[in-house]
Design a binder for these strands. Structure first.
Lengths: 209, 209
DNA sequence: AAACCGTACGACCGATCGGTCTTCTTAATA
DNA sequence: TATTAAGAAGACCGATCGGTCGTACGGTTT
């Protein structure tokens, strides 16, 4: 029988380390501004060594997107799913997103924000994949809204699509304002909290402040 | 007496043409991705000719910011200021912003959106200037909210800062969603409209749909 | 032990980057 | 008419870009 192949294990370790650094770097410089030379220097590996794992910069960009998506699922979505279904889970998701920004997990703030805005004026497989990940995120928000409606915690005439849009909008703007204007993300938290409490059939499901 | 100097006039024409193209290009590639070579090619001028007007790329970036700010003031802020002070002017500002995006005035959608997100992870005079322009924009929104409160069109306990945040957030997210997900900006319009009508002392100041 | 394969390196490539310098044209001024 | 100054072009610079190629190390399989 064959145990774990030491070569593959080492490769996997390297790959993870590179993608960690790539996501961090891209959160500052964007996926386009991400430079293979700088990435290699930071990790003390050779630039050509990167091509042993990804055949082109575009492939590394796509791998970085998947890596960032995993990180987002683990650090933002995961904790929220521990909360009870409905309004509380929806607000918890918004809060853990703001926490992700406040804790400065990534030096640039958010991998997806900069990569997605960078993609607004372009076409290609990278923008396509980013659009799909964004759609997935919006769909998640809409699903949490729908569940809250089904549980009777939000009025039956709620439009999930629009409320999801509002929650996401507050998150995006929170990042921009907190980073560029050094404002606390409290506006974003209060805005969504007030909005949800205003709609809720039982506001006591949510905190007061 | 001296009339208009033909040399200076020509320079000014060139400068305007270059900045027009620079703002358009930067709306797609960002201020960092803006390349002097590509810019020169597109305008059929020489790259070194650009240095006759700006001593460095950074100076051109700063000039492009001022140019984009002028464009924004003329095409977005100006029309809104024609509306009567208060709620109607506030909503008109939001609408003309969405129109700016929908009309695809800039190929990338919005110069400031991509430039500002690009700046979230950096420091320097360019991010500083972009932060100042953003602060100016937020301050404008807050002022319009305050005026609506003073006119009694919004409740006295309205927090201008937070409402301004909500309106801006809807605008930012509208750009991202419409560009990357091909969604209509109607969610952004409806969200702000419903929010303002909900707060308004006289909802009839605003349209129904 | 030999063959094999995943990993990683250094040297090198053409293209493009921001930027400099010299030259030429054109229009205003003395 | 001679001089001056602004605008613009072309040749050129070192640095960096993404990417290729040949080679070497080390763990796996036969």
């Amino acid at each position: 029988m064959t145990g774990t192949d030491g070569r593959l294990a080492r490769g996997e370790r390297t790959r993870t380390a590179v993608l960690d650094a790539a996501v961090a770097l891209a959160s500052q410089a964007g996926l386009d501004g991400l430079s293979l030379g700088q990435l290699a220097d930071r990790l003390h590996v050779s630039k050509s060594g990167l091509f042993a794992h990804w055949s082109s910069k575009e492939e590394l960009q796509l791998a970085a997107i998947e890596h960032a998506r995993d990180q987002w699922a683990r650090r933002v979505v995961g904790p929220a799913l521990d909360r009870p279904r409905g309004l509380r889970r929806l607000f918890a998701l918004h809060e853990s997103r703001l926490a992700f920004y406040s804790e400065r997990v990534l030096p640039g703030g958010c991998f997806f924000a900069i990569a997605e805005f960078e993609s607004t004026g372009r076409t290609g497989v990278v923008p396509d994949r980013l659009a799909a990940v964004l759609a997935e995120w919006i769909t998640l928000l809409e699903r949490l809204v729908t569940e809250a409606v089904e549980l009777g915690e939000l009025p039956a005439d709620t439009v999930p699509r629009r409320l999801a849009f509002e929650v996401d909008a507050a998150g995006v703007a929170a990042l921009l304002h907190s980073r560029l204007l050094a404002r606390s993300p409290d506006d974003a938290r209060q805005a969504v909290l007030a909005r949800l409490r205003g709609l809720a059939t039982d506001p006591d499901l949510l905190p007061y402040d």
